[in-house]
Design a protein around this nucleic acid. Structure first.
Length: 472
DNA sequence: TCTGGGGTCCTTAGCCCT
DNA sequence: TCTGAGGGCTAAGGACCC
């Protein structure tokens, strides 16, 4: 999908169509997640600090991401892909590999192209969004093709033309070649894929290591036989927070680590896993990052166990000078073991945790609480207003302050004016634009931040229910 | 007002075991 | 008994991707 988050925002907020839209973190340390093509003309791009983006594009619309909506749209598109083939490998919310041959929907260039064009049209009909299609004989080439096809295009790489097509391209077009490797190669005088081939495999291995070097050489030749894999198991689960200002207080830091451990376990359980290795991540004031990890005797999904491990790991870290980010993760994932299930069911009984204590990683009472909290949290959109959630849970910050925080881009509903979205807020006022997907660009009104007639709401779907449903 | 969050994979080094 | 090779595991860091 092209400029996915920004495109969804434009489709969902009619007044933003054709405008520069920047989606990302709005705090003092936010970065751009996606910029619309209009914003890119100002030089704004992904991963750029928000401050810089605002300087380059002062009149853009700056919005927080609404992941739940993006996920909804993504589900629709992925379902359409699965109609083409059972072999669909999602890379992210907005990108996937599809093995068209395995689906029997394409067996040569003309049928592949036809399938791709039809898919693009169907996606537009179903979501109103534009996507790009890259068609080729391998994942690597399909990826390169889809990047070249953007925006709103289709590119097919004919078998036999791979090498000459790739040769003049920058090494950075190859997946896996980022800033560091790119610079490494540039210093050796290698800037194009063709020069990569000329350098030869041995030379590349010497420069960037065995695995990367061999892989690079094969890619440069257009060789890639990795299959499309439909089901891929998660390998780790982690959560992290960057703080608006560096943390110095050791007590506060410990508290944050505990919070993160709890959130991590909630996610771990949500994914149906337990894990064996606990990882603490600390980014210091100077942006240097260190990780500390500890491997348990067996997998756990017990919040108390993860909290304690994280706390132990923190004890070994010097935080004088300040901390800008903390994270807690779990790797070495396992499916639930029989013991875990047994322990959990016991823990769910009134005060039955005692009997389960023999099993490793027995789920404590906190576990049951966590699940209940999750089940009950249907009304408040978890990702919709991360800032507000943060404030409510963060010790040492204005807890549940009477005036709610209205994040730019978030969904609201007014008792009189209906659905709209927050355009901005400050000095006790919040400005709302009243419009919805498919409507005319809406009017703007300003309210007091504590206006009782105004409340947060869930995103409205891009296309009405019963709209053009997948006729792929 | 420089640099998010959630991941994956690879490399290196040390340790233990065979 | 000493030494070395090699594999597996753990820990830490780095590059990369969207």
């Amino acid at each position: 999908m092209d400029a996915f988050y920004a495109s969804v925002e434009q489709a969902s907020k009619p007044s933003l169509q054709g405008k520069a839209v920047i989606v990302g973190g709005l705090g003092p340390r936010g970065v751009v997640a996606t910029a619309s093509y209009e914003a890119r003309r100002f030089g704004v791009h992904s991963a750029m600090p928000m401050g810089q983006a605002r300087r380059l594009c002062p009149n853009g619309a700056y919005l927080i991401p609404r992941f739940s909506l993006y996920r909804q749209v993504s589900d629709v598109v992925m379902a359409m892909l699965r109609e083409l083939s059972p072999l669909v490998e999602p890379l992210s919310l907005d990108e996937a590999f599809v093995d068209l041959e395995a689906g029997g929907v394409a067996f040569d260039s003309p049928t592949a192209r036809e399938t791709g064009e039809r898919l693009r049209a169907d996606i537009r009909a179903a979501t109103g969004l534009s996507g790009s299609v890259g068609l080729a004989g391998s994942k690597m080439l399909a990826k390169v093709a889809s990047e070249e096809a953007k925006p709103a295009g289709l590119l097919l790489i004919e078998p036999g033309t791979e090498r000459e097509l790739l040769a003049p391209m920058s090494v950075r077009t190859l997946p896996g070649v980022g800033p560091a490797t790119g610079e490494h190669l540039r210093r050796a005088g290698i800037t194009t894929v063709g020069e990569l081939v000329e350098a030869g495999e041995d030379e590349l291995v010497r420069m960037v290591g065995r695995s990367a070097g061999a892989g690079l050489y094969r890619m440069a030749l257009g060789l890639d036989d990795r299959p499309v894999v439909a089901e891929r198991d998660a390998k780790s689960v982690s959560v992290e927070d960057t703080f608006d200002v560096d943390l110095h207080d050791r007590v506060r830091i410990r508290g944050e680590v505990q919070r993160l451990a709890d959130r991590c376990v909630q996610r771990l359980r949500g994914s149906g896993h337990s894990g064996r290795t606990i990882v603490l991540k600390v980014r210091r004031y100077d942006f240097s990052t260190l990780t500390r990890s500890e491997t348990l005797r067996g997998p756990t999904d017990d919040p108390a166990v993860v909290r304690e491990a994280a706390a132990r790991l923190l004890e070994g870290v010097d935080t004088t000078g300040g901390v800008r980010l903390l994270g807690v993760g779990v790797t070495g994932l396992a499916d639930y073991t029989q013991e875990d299930l047994f322990a959990q069911s016991l823990a769910a009984e009134p005060d039955g945790a005692e009997g389960a204590a023999g099993a490793e990683g027995a789920a404590g009472p906190a576990g049951a609480g966590g699940e209940a909290a999750e089940a009950g949290a249907t009304e408040a959109e978890p990702e919709g207003a991360p800032g507000a959630r943060e404030a409510a849970e963060t010790p040492g910050e204005p807890v549940a302050s009477p005036e709610r925080r209205w994040m730019a881009g978030s969904d609201v509903r007014h008792a009189v004016y209906g659905p709209g979205w927050v355009q901005g807020s400050g000095v006790g006022r919040v400005t709302v634009r009243f419009e919805q997907p498919g409507s005319e660009p809406g009017r703007v009104r300003t309210f007091r931040v504590d206006d009782p007639e105004l409340e947060p709401s869930d995103p409205l779907p891009l296309v009405g229910e019963g709209g053009p449903e997948g006729t792929v």
